[in-house]
Computed example of a mutant assay.
Amino acid sequence: MSAQNSAGIQTLLDAEREASKIVQKAREFRTKRVREARDEAKKEIDAYRKSKEEDFKKFESEHTQGNKQAEDEANKEADAKIKEIQASGKKNQGQVVDDLLKAVFEVKPVAPSAA
């Protein structure tokens, strides 16, 4: 009877070892699958992000075109005004200097009024 008990115990121990191996393989498979799923999700997220960035750049380039034209027009107008002011300054430069010198050298004192 002890031989039979010993054989039964040995069979149970073998079955337990085999079950432990099966559980370990299942854990390894699950861990591997989780890593694969995470990597796959990262790839999908990167592809989605890249797609949305391209869409944004396309949208931005389409809508900044009008701003660029308006900016160019504003720059042209500003340049024209600057040239006009410079021409006016050169034209009246002599008169302005004469008026300033006249104001400095021809002093007309005025008495203060009583308040």
Rank of each mutant, 00 (worst) to 15 (best):
E40L: 07
A87R: 01
A114H: 11
E106G: 04
V23H: 12
V96W: 02
S2G: 15
A114L: 12
Q24R: 06
E40S: 06
S88D: 14
V107W: 10
A80Q: 09
R38L: 13
A114V: 14
A37E: 12
T11M: 11
E16Y: 01
A115Q: 15
K58L: 05
K42S: 11
E40H: 07
S6M: 11
I45G: 00
E84I: 00
V110W: 01
F105V: 14
F105R: 10
K68G: 02
S6Q: 12
Q24K: 04
P112K: 03
V104F: 13
S20P: 07
A15R: 01
Q4Y: 10
K25N: 09
K21M: 14
R33V: 08
D39E: 15
G94N: 11
I85C: 02
Q95R: 08
D99S: 04
L101A: 13
N5Q: 15
D98K: 12
T64E: 03
Y48L: 15
A7K: 10
F29W: 00
R35Y: 09
E106H: 04
D98H: 14
D39L: 10
G89V: 10
K91E: 05
P109F: 00
A47H: 05
S6T: 06
T11R: 13
S2F: 11
Q65D: 04
G94E: 12
D46M: 05
K108Y: 02
L101G: 08
E73Y: 03
T11I: 11
Q95T: 13
V104D: 13
A114I: 10
K21C: 01
A78E: 08
E53Q: 08
T31N: 15
S6L: 15
D46P: 01
L101F: 13
I85F: 07
K57P: 04
E71Y: 04
A26I: 10
T64F: 01
V107A: 15
E60Q: 05
A74V: 02
I82R: 15
K76G: 04
N67P: 00
A37P: 08
S88F: 11
K42W: 09
A115I: 09
A37M: 13
G66R: 03
V107D: 14
I85A: 12
K76C: 04
I9W: 08
Q10F: 01
F105D: 06
I9S: 05
Q86R: 04
E53C: 02
E62V: 01
T31W: 10
K58Y: 06
E54M: 02
E28Q: 04
V97Y: 05
R30K: 09
K102Y: 06
T64W: 05
V104A: 15
V104L: 15
R38T: 14
N5R: 15
A78G: 02
K83P: 02
D14T: 12
G89P: 03
K21F: 08
K43Q: 07
I82V: 14
A78F: 09
Q10E: 05
K58R: 05
E77W: 07
M1C: 11
N75D: 09
E106R: 06
T31P: 00
A41C: 14
D39G: 10
I82F: 10
L12A: 03
R49H: 01
S2Y: 02
K68A: 03
K108P: 00
D98V: 03
F29D: 09
A15Q: 07
Q86I: 08
A115S: 06
Q10W: 00
K58D: 03
A115K: 15
E44D: 13
